[in-house]
Simulated assay, not measured.
Amino acid sequence: MAPPPSRTHPHVTMHDVAQKAGVSAQTVSNVINGRSERVSPETIDRVTKVIDELGYRLNQSARSLRRGRTGIVGLAVPLLTSEYYGELAERLTRRFSAQGIRLATEDTGGAMTAEVESLAGSHLETYDGFILAVAASESADLDRILPTKPIVLLGERALSTRFDHVLMDNVGGAEMATGYLLDRGARSVVAIGGATTGSESVKTLRTKGYVEAHRARGLDVRSELVVDARLDMAGGYQETMALIDSRVPFDGLFALTDSIAHGALRALADHGVRVPHDVQIVGFDNVASSAYSTPRLTTIEPGNDEMADEIVGIMLARLRSSAPRGEPERRMLPTSLVVRESTR
């Protein structure tokens, strides 16, 4: 059986609609673009019925190009398979879509070269603006860029002041997480995924908060409890297994990401270690799956929704401004603790 004919006819033009409705092409344009104060209700009704009858569809791409816009904002993240970045992209997609803007997401692999190239003028031709989650680039790398479109940076560190930047409070959130474990009786708290040396990053900043929580309570930090790990489930599982095998005693675990925490939970379960009875755990990021793990994960909420609101708000303000590269904005979102079942 042949498929039913489509009601959309790609060769129907605005002039065809105008002729059928007995009005001018300008009147059709006014109806399509919402300039209803210039058209009577009867004419609007007649034009919309003809549009539906003929299957006319506005060429949005051509319309955007005539306005000097693509209708697309780009987002580049270090890892598309990351639950955190996937949720960020979903939040931004919904918010931009409500404004009639599409979000296109790219993967930089966390490589400095890919991050810098994503901001090159030739690459930005595709977009009206661009959002970059910075993983590897330093201020010096970004300062060489001459932006041709609005750019919003995301990331753990204070970078170039030439761009709008939305950050989370990594140090404060990590101090809150570690302090909560210490205040609930843990005395040997592991920072899994931590690093005390190296350039400023999510690892060093969250480890700094871990250290500050100990110092605020007059406690020393034991170097063997700061355990480097990849910031994913496999890293959390592998390093927690190695820590248990090393027989280093611990009764608390601050995981630098929720993904690490999920891997650690599996490793502890495999060794028969009870959470939170034997070891208490706090994660960081409050990804959706943390409310469904066994046990449900206590974690740091870094202001995920508020961060998405800030990013979209800054970008829209730049796109609508006659001076899109005005004084750069810098916003740091406060963190909060979400208490669930992995702590006492």
Score class of each variant (00 low, 15 high):
Glu83Asp: 09
Glu83Trp: 08
Glu83Arg: 12
Glu83Lys: 10
Tyr84Val: 07
Tyr84Arg: 03
Tyr85Cys: 02
Tyr85Phe: 15
Tyr85Leu: 08
Tyr85Lys: 02
Gly86Thr: 13
Gly86Asp: 06
Glu87Phe: 07
Glu87Pro: 02
Leu88Glu: 07
Ala89Lys: 09
Ala89Gln: 06
Glu90Gly: 04
Glu90Met: 12
Arg91Val: 06
Arg91Lys: 14
Arg91Asp: 14
Leu92Asp: 02
Leu92Tyr: 05
Thr93Phe: 13
Thr93Asp: 14
Arg94Phe: 05
Arg94Leu: 12
Arg95Ile: 01
Arg95His: 03
Arg95Glu: 05
Phe96Lys: 08
Phe96His: 07
Ser97Met: 08
Ser97Lys: 13
Ser97Thr: 13
Ala98Asp: 09
Ala98Gln: 14
Ala98Ser: 15
Ala98Val: 04
Ala98Leu: 10
Ala98Lys: 15
Gln99Tyr: 08
Gln99Met: 08
Gly100Asp: 09
Gly100Met: 08
Ile101Gly: 03
Ile101Tyr: 12
Ile101Phe: 05
Leu103Thr: 06
Leu103Phe: 06
Leu103Ile: 09
Leu103Gln: 09
Leu103Pro: 01
Ala104Val: 14
Ala104Phe: 14
Ala104Gln: 12
Thr105Glu: 03
Thr105Phe: 13
Thr105Cys: 10
Glu106Gly: 02
Glu106Val: 12
Glu106Leu: 11
Asp107Gln: 09
Thr108Trp: 04
Gly110Pro: 01
Gly110Ser: 11
Ala111Arg: 13
Ala111His: 08
Met112Ala: 12
Met112Val: 14
Met112Trp: 04
Ala114Thr: 11
Ala114Val: 06
Ala114Lys: 04
Ala114Glu: 02
